[in-house]
């Protein structure tokens, strides 16, 4: 195991956040701060809806999670493999195949743009209320 301190911090932060999100649904009038970009411009950013997506995932609703932030769902396995490789050095080959920053950048920017197009079918990508 490499980077033990980061690992412990990350696990602690993830667990706390997960428990909090599990218990308190992140809807608009709650404990959760809105995305500043969204507050100012009204546009979704690429990360908008991820707290709600996490809430739905923690409650076992993958479909609902995708509705809030489909990119989160897509990146979860990527991040899982990346983190596993970072901390244990395992899954090197798999991570090397996934470690394509240019594709990630294009996906994020593309997603960011099309989720803000205000009509069907792009509307579905919107973070929703």
């Amino acid at each position: 195991m490499k980077h033990t301190i980061i690992f412990v911090l990350l696990i602690a932060a993830t667990t706390t956040t997960a428990v909090f999100i599990y218990m308190y649904p992140p809807t608009n009038n709650s404990y959760y701060p809105p995305c500043i970009l969204k507050k100012i411009t009204g546009f979704d950013c690429a990360g908008c809806g991820s707290a709600r997506a996490c809430y739905q995932l923690l409650h076992g609703n993958a479909g609902q999670a995708a509705n809030h932030n489909v990119l989160l769902l897509l990146f979860l396995p990527v991040m899982a493999i990346g983190l596993l490789h970072f901390f244990t050095g395992k899954m090197k080959a798999a991570w090397q195949r996934l470690n394509k920053p240019m594709i990630v950048l294009c996906l994020v920017v593309f997603f960011w743009i099309i989720r803000n197009i205000p009509f069907f079918p792009f509307e579905w990508l919107h973070s929703d209320k």
């Binding site: 500043i36 950013c45 690429a46 990360g47 707290a51 990346g82 470690n99 960011w112």
Partner: peptide, 26 residues
């Protein structure tokens, strides 16, 4: 290239600063 952290911060933080990290990672 620290892409894991770049993705994590882009998707999970309430500010779209992580995109700068992804650009550097590329």
């Amino acid at each position: 290239n620290n892409l894991v952290w770049a993705i994590l911060s882009t998707i999970l933080c309430c500010l779209p600063l992580g995109i700068v990290a992804i650009i550097s990672a590329t």
